[in-house]
Design a protein around this nucleic acid. Structure first.
Lengths: 163, 163
DNA sequence: CTCGGTTTTGACCTTTACTGACATTATTAT
DNA sequence: ATAATAATGTCAGTAAAGGTCAAAACCGAG
């Protein structure tokens, strides 16, 4: 049958489809009320159904007059990046970073400036930390590097249509 | 969707933009009246939206014929910012990063795309790490964050010469 | 029936916005 | 001088969002 989850997903998809710019702004609380469920249920729907892998981006703000914004990304041209993200990103070594970033630049996903910025964050900056703080623990640096790479790639995904 | 805060910010920004010297003088009370809110609300807007990290300076005077002056800081070189970072290494908070980066974008030192990339590395990515690894030790995250910021800024500086 | 995955909920947390009482400072009239 | 008046500043408290996480409930395949 149809789960609550599915209904909420359908409802939101319909809203997005009938929106001119493929983006909607909702209030978590109000949707939860409409479907008579826990507010956190909405978060569940968002993380399982409206994530990047399914072609959506979610932005939000807390506090008074907070909101949740759902944006649909046209994913066609970005397939390679997405499929790369889907694979485990946790095993990225320093040497890999250069390769990936250069590839992005070659393919025209990012500019040369952007490529240099990305390398500054993932290579130079992390090397500084490495040598000044903990010579030993390379594994943590790997983790941080992967996280940065992943988030930057996601950002590249978004940028293609965000202006 | 739009908070009072946002409206006041927009209003003031518009005023500043249409001012020849990028500075305006207002009266707290009058603005509060116009927006029908508590005067202290204006102070809230000033501290959250018009602080140094966002590229503004606020001066004021109390008493009879008191005023509030908002000045947009012109930056023509990045060196001061970088050298500030050298000193304040571990004191850079997440919100500060966002402020600085937005400021740089506004001033045209970096593009909006570049700003988003930088924030992805310094905010989103590091937050992921923080929550998944060591909830306690924020100090190390601060260190990494400022190292990344510094290296990225230096990169921006260099790029002014290259290409 | 049982096991593994998916949904759903609820308790608790963090962030943001906003207000009001009270404090401080400057000007002006007496 | 002094008191009245007219500004802004501060801070703590409240309200109004959304976020997180673990545990319970559900559900389908074997």
């Amino acid at each position: 049958m149809f789960s609550l989850c599915d209904s909420i997903e359908k409802y939101l998809v319909k809203l997005i489809e009938s929106s001119p710019n493929s983006a909607i702004v909702i209030q978590r609380g109000r949707i939860a009320q409409e479907f008579d469920c826990a507010p956190s249920q909405i978060n569940y729907v968002l993380t399982t159904r409206f994530n990047v892998f399914r072609g959506f981006i979610v932005e939000s703000r807390r506090g008074g007059s907070g909101y949740v914004k759902i944006i649909r990304i046209p994913i066609d041209r970005l397939e390679p990046v997405v499929s790369y993200l889907e694979k485990a990103v946790s095993g990225i070594k320093e040497a890999d970073v250069e390769g990936i970033v250069n590839w992005l630049a070659r393919e025209g996903f990012i500019t040369n400036r952007e490529a240099r910025l990305m390398k500054a964050a993932m290579v130079t900056a992390l090397n500084n930390i490495q040598s000044s703080v903990n010579q030993q623990d390379h594994s943590q640096t790997h983790l941080i590097r992967s996280s940065i790479l992943k988030e930057m790639l996601m950002q590249v995904l978004r940028m293609d249509f965000l202006e």
